[in-house]
Amino acid sequence: MDAIASPSVPDVKGASGAGVRIRVRGLAKRYGALEVFRSIDLDVGDCEILSIVGPSGCGKTTLLRCIDGLIPVDEGEIWVNGTRVTQPIAGMAMVFQHFGLFPWKTVYGNVAYGLKMAGASKAEIAERVPHFIAMVGLKGFENAYPYQISGGMQQRCGLARALAVEPSVLLMDEPFAAVDAQTREILQFELLRIWEQRPTTMLFVTHSIEEAVLMGDRVIVLKGRPSSIAETIVVDLPRPRTRETLREPRFAALREHVWSTLLSEARRAEFEVGGGL
């Protein structure tokens, strides 16, 4: 098992320096007396997918919101594409756990939203939106309102909205947690397919170990109270990853490894916070 883990080296692909998209140093966040996490260091390379797993309430979503610049940090620094993040910056887009679609906008309007905020021209929007709607497989549903489509399709729409601004960094906040198990699997492979077409740097927060291993080039395990990075696991599974990947013994071994790292902590956390989300 030790062969899998490479703890003290946070940046692998990014070790060369030039390809680092996200650099986080000494990050800490507190809510009053509650310390959510402390001394988080991480680097994410160009076109790398970094998964973050941890038990419920470990602050992985908070970490992602900090990196997006939505909430201020108490200590440490975040750099994305060489810019210090204190508020949301261009070139970064987020996919939200609860979709965050505006109910009064159609699929088209929601996908266009990010472009509109980025100041794209009408012509540009008209050209790009259909492309991204097709990419996520929502063709034919342009004029549907969110309430008219299923949860899975709503998240496809959320994904298209993020992709449409052509970000170099994509932040995924448990994007498939609110859809049912079958849809979730479909969307995972869909996302991998899209990534193969158009690779970006991705930070993928999830509480599903399987999902973390399937998606990530590396998996970071958040543990403890306040939480910190307990371990970084390099996922040396070949890409493109498909349903076949799930059956490989290597996949099972990696999943077991992450699981055993998490297990003790997860149990304790479950009793402390009552297990719920």
């Binding site: 939505l70 508020q87 949301p88 939200f96 965050g100 505006f102 905020m117 980025a118």
Partner: peptide
């Protein structure tokens, strides 16, 4: 609040 957060994330 989610809506406001989405707006901020897309730098509205």
């Amino acid at each position: 609040r989610e809506y406001m957060e989405v707006a901020r994330s897309f730098r509205a």
